[in-house]
Amino acid sequence: MLALDGLKVHFDVSRRRGEKVVVKAVDGVTLRLRKGEAFGLVGESGSGKSTIGKAALHLVPITGGRLEIGGEEMTRLDRRAERRLRRTAQMIFQDPHSALNPRMTILRSVAEPLVLHTPLRGAALTARVAALLEIVGLSRQFLYRYPHELSGGQKQRVCIARAIALEPELLILDEPTSALDVSVQSQILEFLKKLQADLGLTYLFISHNLAVVRYLCRRVAVMYLGVIVEEGETEALFSNPRHPYTQALLKAVPYPQAVQPDRGSPLQGDIPSPVDLPPGCRFHKRCPAFIPGVCDRHEPPQVRDGDAMVRCHLFADAART
């Protein structure tokens, strides 16, 4: 459904003393999403996970690599391809409070994609919007309300209604529940799960919340500073993480239970700035399994094992022997 091949998104930020400063937000990412699957993309800030979502919808310019949606090359867009892209793929943003135009009624907001892409107008349009609201569990009395009159969970439901209005096949969800309270988060997650099953949607689910990804996604990729360090079936990856970063990430999450598992000392240091990437493996400065002379010199190779992939020198040796 969605295929990325060595996708790169670089931003020129500014010139420091005449020198160009380039942020390599996404630096060669390859991903394949099968139709109807929920794929999780996890990582911390600066990992480039949100940028991938935006690049897939051409909301940020693609610097290099290939983008394919629904089997169609979409790296460069002409008018026709753009119209098709806007119908097949939709995005749901992190903060529902700012994802709705405060000056538009819920009716107008949800109707917007329909106005742009279909000949529906007037009463038929209103009826369609009311039906969409019903799907997301909101009554028609919301039609003429403004966003500020709705709670966070209700706004996110409105955003979901708007995103599914054109019956897209691919939904990119960028941290859709992290601005919501726990009890509302579970309502939205349950709904998203049901929606995916009912409509056969493909999800690219971007999140920093590992528990949420584990709950919703069948496969998952872990990003660190613009590259994917590990990828695999969710359960396999969570129960047997291979990359030292994935291990540290999983260990860092506190469990909501009485007795905490022994997690050793936390990962030291900060996430480096994507402007100033470390040479070799991007994780080597914080890595507990750092091999001097190897990790700080050479980029680790991708080691594939069926559906799983890990990008680490530790496994390069294993693959060789």
């Binding site: 903060d95 538009m104 742009l116």
Partner: peptide
């Protein structure tokens, strides 16, 4: 603003974004 990005992701033209999403605000 995210709602402007959202409008763009739905395929709204620049004119529409200016008159529907920016000017009223």
């Amino acid at each position: 603003e995210i709602y402007v990005q959202a409008a763009r992701s739905m395929g709204a033209s620049s004119l529409r974004i200016v008159f529907v999403h920016i000017l009223p605000n």
